[in-house]
Structures are given as structure tokens and as C-alpha cells.
Design a protein around this nucleic acid. Sequence first.
DNA 1: CGAGTTTGACCTGCGC
DNA 2: GCGCAGGTCAAACTCG
Length: 211
Amino acid sequence: MPTQMGFFSFAPHSSFPQLGICQQSLKGFTIPHSLAADAPSAANLTETLLSSAAAKQREDMTANLGGPHFFSLQRSSANLWAWGEVSECLSSKRSGGDDQYLGVSSMKMKKIKGRRKVREPRFCFKTMSDVDVLDDGYKWRKYGQKVVKNTLHPRSYYRCTQDNCRVKKRVERLAEDPRMVITTYEGRHVHSPSHDLEDSDAQSHLNNFFF
DNA sequence: CGAGTTTGACCTGCGC
DNA sequence: GCGCAGGTCAAACTCG
């Protein structure tokens, strides 16, 4: 059975105004189980986030809550990047590097001397679930798995199967609590989710969410 | 047979 | 410069 509750954390990135809310308000709020369910619909994804953010804000107003797991996420390697290095991503020059990346194979790319790695915006969230890979509406292909130091569970690497879409995600289980799954998204989808064609409204929501 | 997964090797960035 | 750790590749393999 999946979770009762999850945790969501946004990297401070300028694209978030697409959601109409500031990322600070989203930091650390709890999300209901619907987001982390086996097959969360695209439609309720953003809706859930927004309502949960509001609920979190209300919660913070009335009580000084915030479980230890909030901080544990911020210590994770994925999140360290998200909170500590996004500014670097934002300030990096995007000209040149992208063209190199798109035009050649990754192996050839490695041989381009002095290239600068262009880091995509990332965000991560933590959910309590038995399944590692939550259905977010996109189709992913696993391209690697790695045992990370000081963790009992391997980290899995996935890439969006869509052509020209460079979005990646990492999935790992929390060392302190194996029931918790940390999913880190990197990049921006250039297409719509694969299985929500019947719901165009949901599509637009998700496009905003997975910027 | 094509698509997806596994897994060892390789590459790169970073700290010392 | 060296070693470590994270990230990626790609051949081999599995599965439908």
C-alpha cells in the first residue's frame, strides 16, 4: 500500500511563477496520498500541490510543526544540489553548450574539450511508497543504477523516452527510512504526458508543473 | 524483433 | 596529482 503522506521540495528556480506561487511557500509542505498513489492523475497533481501548499501555510501559521524528515530531505545529496547549486545553473551561460549536447552523441560530447556541463533545473520530492517509480504520466527508460555511499538502497537513473526530451529523474530510497522514496526530476519536458490524451486540461496543468 | 533493463566499465567533478 | 563518488554509456540480456 502506498503512502498516507509525502513531502515536497522545490528548488528555488525562476520558472516557478508559472505556478502562480512562490517556491518558498511550497517548501516543506505535506501532500496527501493522492499524489504518491500508484497512478496519480495528471489533473490532480498540480491541484494537490497547490491546495497542500496552502494547507501547509495554514499549518505553519497555527503551529510550529515540521517533522524531522523535512530536514533529512534537505540533507540528501539530491537536495543539496537543488538548494545549493541552482543559482549556478541560473547564472551559467546556456549558449553553445546546449547546441553541443543536442547535436552529438554523449560519447562524442565527452570528447569536446572544455565543454561546460549545462545543469537543468531540478526539484525533488519524497513520498512514502512501496513502489519506487510513481506514474507521473510520462514514459521513462532506465539507463543506470548506482549504489550510493552510506545508503542501503541503489539509486536508479531514468530518462524520458520521448525523442529530443532530455528530462531525467533519479529514484532512491531514504537510508533512514526505506519506506520513503526520493524522486528527483531534472530538466523540462518538451512534450505532453503520454497517457492523458483524453484530458487536455490535465495536460496543461502538468506542463506547468513539469516545466 | 523491438523495447526496456541490467551491470560493469568508463568519465567527470571535487576534495584533500 | 590522486583517489573517491556520482553519473552515464553501451553491450548483453530479458521480456512481451
